[in-house]
Amino acid sequence: MRADAKKNRDRLLAVAGEVFAEQGADASLRDIARKAGVGLGTLYRHFPTREALLETLLRASFEALAARAGELETSDSADEALVVWMHETTEFTYSQRGIIALMMDAIEDTNSALHASCVMLRVAGTALLTRAQAEGKARDDLNGEELFDLIAALAWLREQPAHAPRADRLFDIIAGAVLTDRPEV
């Protein structure tokens, strides 16, 4: 990649990160290009879709969450490892304003730029769930797809001003429903 093209790409990523953090995943791509000092065509040459731009921005974080699940797989407590990862993933997903709907669509769409990253997260969570189930600490009738859905639902609740105050309590209730021996809230 030419030096000027790399500079434009890096500038687009930096600006997009700021704009998405302020305005959410539906922020105007035209505004991102303008604030980065490039034309919309330059943005689309580097990132042909909104999802491609988001995937590039989020890939490192998704990989870190998957690696975190790998670390937690070796912890002494399978149930606590699962709950910690669920909490960290819920918080991350919530912090990326407006990405929940995109993730839920992307996990089902193999053509989505975000698909592989979302599948990576689901696989990571499934491994923790499977370990907890093997130890009798998590209900056997739950699968990784449903776990992914629960995390998305919990993150969505945090995004809703009327529901956000109850989000921590609802997380505890859901965690209690996933695990077999977690005390009731």
Rank of each mutant, 00 (worst) to 15 (best):
M1D: 15
M1C: 12
D4H: 12
D4K: 14
K6E: 15
K7T: 15
R9I: 05
D10T: 08
D10K: 09
R11Q: 13
L12W: 10
L13K: 05
A14R: 09
A14W: 06
A16I: 01
G17E: 01
G17Q: 06
G17L: 02
E22C: 04
E22S: 07
Q23Y: 00
Q23R: 03
G24K: 00
G24Q: 00
D26R: 01
D26A: 04
D26T: 08
A27N: 00
S28I: 02
L29M: 10
A33E: 03
K35Q: 12
K35V: 01
A36I: 01
G37E: 03
G39R: 06
G39C: 09
G41L: 03
L43S: 03
Y44T: 02
F47E: 03
F47W: 09
P48D: 07
P48K: 04
R50M: 05
R50Q: 02
L53A: 01
E55L: 05
T56F: 07
L57C: 01
A60F: 05
S61L: 13
S61R: 15
F62E: 02
E63D: 15
A64Q: 13
L65G: 11
A66C: 03
R68E: 11
R68I: 02
A69R: 00
E71D: 10
E71I: 10
L72W: 00
D76C: 07
S77A: 06
A78N: 03
A78H: 02
D79P: 00
D79I: 07
M86S: 09
H87Y: 12
H87T: 11
H87W: 12
E91R: 13
F92C: 05
F92N: 14
Y94D: 08
Y94H: 12
Q96T: 10
Q96M: 12
R97S: 00
R97Q: 02
I99N: 14
I99H: 03
A101I: 13
M103F: 15
M103I: 14
M104I: 13
M104S: 10
D105W: 10
I107Y: 14
I107K: 11
D109I: 08
T110R: 15
T110H: 10
N111W: 10
S112C: 09
A116Q: 09
A116G: 13
C118I: 06
V119W: 08
V119S: 08
M120Y: 07
L121N: 03
R122Q: 12
A124D: 06
A124V: 06
A124W: 00
G125D: 02
T126M: 00
A127R: 08
A127S: 02
A127F: 00
R131H: 04
R131C: 11
Q133R: 12
R139Q: 14
R139M: 15
D140R: 15
L142A: 11
L142W: 11
N143I: 05
E145Y: 12
L147K: 09
L147T: 05
F148E: 05
D149Q: 15
L150P: 06
A152F: 07
A153Y: 14
A155I: 05
W156I: 12
L157D: 06
L157N: 12
R158Q: 13
R158Y: 10
A162P: 04
H163D: 08
A164T: 04
P165M: 01
R166N: 07
F171G: 01
I174D: 07
A175G: 02
G176L: 06
A177I: 15
V178M: 14
V178K: 07
T180W: 09
D181F: 05
D181P: 02
D181K: 06
E184N: 12
V185P: 13
V185H: 08
